[in-house]
């Protein structure tokens, strides 16, 4: 579904990704783990076309999107939950969700909105509350809900567990598992390696701009190198 072939990405003259190849198949949860500064977010941003890859190819559903502008990519059935949630704090919960379905018809928006409220009953309670006044966990739910509003067949999550309490993290990961049941492909980027690999069908380990390991989630969890570096031994 999403394929990155030997992708190099530069920030100015500095190369941040040194030829990364990643494949995410339909219906899978794929986790990408790595330390700070390994290039995880850069990889995601390259998929979104900001910055664009300097060489290599990004293919989504068989279409080369390497040179497409961000706005086009984000309208082709892919949704991203950006790092740090980035909800519209001045708008209400409902309005945030509506922004997520910006390019859909009103009927579609209504349907996806109900669906999001089923997934996150908490958001329904807070429907007309200003999004910025909610707790971190609720904001993360809103960010995921907003991404789902465009009815994507693939969702990319950038550090959804960032700054959240363990209990809330558990909830969020349960929801991510639920998304797979619904047939949504999930590409998960996490520092929280244990949870991310536990949930994932397959996983990639990114180290200083290169893919170091690639295996099933379970194998990676048992891999001594991964255990040492990311799971605290």
């Amino acid at each position: 579904m999403l394929v990155l072939e030997d992708v190099h990405t530069h920030y100015g003259k500095i190369e941040a990704l040194h030829g990364v190849s990643v494949e995410v198949n339909k219906g899978e949860i794929v986790s990408l783990i790595g330390a700070n500064g390994a290039g995880k977010t850069t990889l995601l941003m390259t998929v979104c076309g900001n910055p664009q890859a300097t060489s290599g190819r990004v293919v989504l559903n068989g279409r080369d999107i390497t040179r497409d502008p961000t706005s086009t990519i984000m309208r082709s059935g892919i949704a991203i939950v950006p790092e740090g949630r980035r909800i519209f704090s001045g708008l209400t919960v409902e309005e945030n969700l509506h922004m997520g379905g910006f390019f859909n018809t009103k009927a579609e928006i209504r349907k996806s909105q109900e669906h999001v409220y089923e997934l996150f009953p908490r958001l329904k309670e807070r429907e007309s509350q200003r999004a910025g006044t909610m707790s971190g966990g609720e904001q993360q739910m809103l960010a995921i809900g907003r991404a789902l509003m465009s009815k994507p067949n693939m969702i990319i999550l950038d550090e959804p567990s960032l700054g959240l309490a363990p209990l809330v993290i558990k909830q969020i990961f349960e929801i991510i598992g639920q998304l797979r049941e619904e047939g949504i492909t999930v590409f998960l980027v996490e520092q929280n390696a244990h949870q991310a690999l536990n949930l994932a069908d397959r996983g990639y380990v990114l180290e200083t701009g290169k893919i170091r390991l690639h295996d099933t989630g379970k194998n990676l969890l048992e891999n001594p190198d991964v255990q040492n570096a990311y799971l605290g031994g």
């Binding site: 706005s71 991203i80 910006f102």
Partner: peptide, 26 residues
């Protein structure tokens, strides 16, 4: 109109707006 909401969204958070497929240029 949608363009009005897009203005507000862009004012609130540019990265989020772009992640939703809004074109910053337009």
């Amino acid at each position: 109109m949608p363009v009005g909401r897009a203005w507000e969204a862009l004012r609130e958070d540019e990265i989020a707006s772009r992640s939703l497929g809004l074109s910053r240029t337009a």
